[in-house]
Nucleic acid binder design. Structure first.
Lengths: 101, 101
DNA sequence: TCGTTATATCGTAATTATACGATATAGTCT
DNA sequence: AGACTATATCGTATAATTACGATATAACGA
């Protein structure tokens, strides 16, 4: 599957899906959806995992374009990347439309 | 994230997303969508990967409920699990509907 | 029954992901 | 400047994934 590569969009989509495929990251997205916006520590507090671990997961989600983070004083304020999430939902919505409804 | 576990549906969803997050498996799904139905060897031929590798990927997709396979003589005939794909598309469609469109 | 064909599974090596503690960085307040 | 707070990054151990070749399984035809 190296010769028959994915398109740019498909690569982006696969990247997002992979990011979401991890249960911890999936929960982080849910958490952000419920809380609109919050700092890293809020997310850390909601889990039994170490701060460094969560920070790592946040990076993956950020790189995938699913969340955004901006500095607020010493903290980082995270929220969903609604643009990215919408794009993802759109892609999946149109995906395999010929065969699966 | 062990204490605050995912629901049954969310686990199933995450499992599907993880399966699709791999570029090889993503291409297999595309291939099946284009060819409707085909045997393992057709998929193997379309890639530079070994037969055993593809077989392994097919198992992951099958376990995730994204494809179905049934024996046709010595071969296995694969096709999309339209039920599963539709469920996935539905889940993503309704997902985060409050915040993202 | 004995090949032949098509897959699945096994054993295993190499890579990637996941988790942690320790440390670095950067803003804030005194 | 110095202490405090919140995060990110580094180094590293462990686990999971991905790939391969070799082998097992199961149907089919001579």
């Amino acid at each position: 599957m190296d010769t028959i590569a994915l398109s740019q969009d498909q690569q982006r989509l696969a990247r997002m899906l992979k990011a979401l495929g991890n249960p911890v990251r999936f929960r982080i997205i849910q958490f952000l959806a419920e809380h609109q916006t919050c700092i890293t520590n809020d997310i850390v507090q909601s889990t039994p995992l170490a701060q460094s671990t969560i920070s790592q997961h946040l990076k993956v989600l950020r790189d995938a374009g699913l969340i955004q983070g901006e500095y607020e004083g010493p903290a980082t304020c995270y929220c969903l990347d609604t643009e990215g999430v919408r794009w993802l939902k759109n892609q999946i919505g149109n995906w395999l439309s010929e065969c699966c409804q």
